[in-house]
Design a protein around this nucleic acid. Structure first.
Lengths: 107, 107
DNA sequence: TTGACTTATTCCCATATGGGAATGTATAAA
DNA sequence: TTTATACATTCCCATATGGGAATAAGTCAA
């Protein structure tokens, strides 16, 4: 069985480097598909597909205007990831302490 | 071209639900492969492979003791993910404000 | 209406996965 | 030294990907 579908959750969606790139690109302001394709130097179909994935998991919102479509990052959904990784904050802090005290012992 | 190798970076490694599960399980204290397999109700080979992936990207450390091997989450590496998602904090906050003021207008 | 644009979809294909079974490999126990 | 443990690896296979080409579909311009 291969990995769960990429459209099933934010973690999977964000596993793709180009999708992270897109999210960074349209975090501050919306951009059209063509603009994004140019910025990433990637074919339009590929970009459209990545955007579709991001939309499916709620990582971007879109707005249609004439023949173009503008996408923008929906940061709120990224909290899922942020919160999950934050669970480990306590541990990385204590691990740092451990490393430090270990260094002290070395002296 | 399929998605980049799962062993290439933390984002890919963490895209797998079972691997996230493992990281949560061994965040506080190390566990043997068998224990983990029992906890996840997954075959030992599968668990070993997931652990291998996690090791390759530095998300876990291991310690061998006799015939068993104990693994433990290396939280420090999760910072990569935490820091990346934190980039968007400013946006999700401003988006919340936008939603709130929008709600006010509705009144 | 016809033609240019901007996106979305579909098809095709090489490649990465993840799980289970079988097997290899240390290490501890008898 | 045999045998049982605890893991790691390998093999096989069904399935998910991502990119490019081609095509569909909707919208604006002439």
């Amino acid at each position: 069985m291969p990995r769960a579908s990429t459209t099933s959750d934010p973690f999977n969606a964000v596993a793709e480097p180009r999708r992270r790139h897109i999210l960074e690109l349209i975090a501050a302001e919306e951009r059209s598909v063509g603009d994004i394709a140019d910025a990433l130097d990637l074919g339009q179909p590929s970009v459209s597909k990545h955007l579709q994935v991001l939309r499916d998991v709620g990582l971007v919102t879109m707005r249609r205007d004439g023949r173009r479509t503008y996408y923008r990052t929906n940061a709120e959904t990224l909290r899922t990831i942020h919160d999950w990784s934050r669970m480990f904050a306590a541990h990385w802090r204590s691990q740092l302490r451990r490393i430090k005290s270990h260094a002290e012992e070395e002296r």
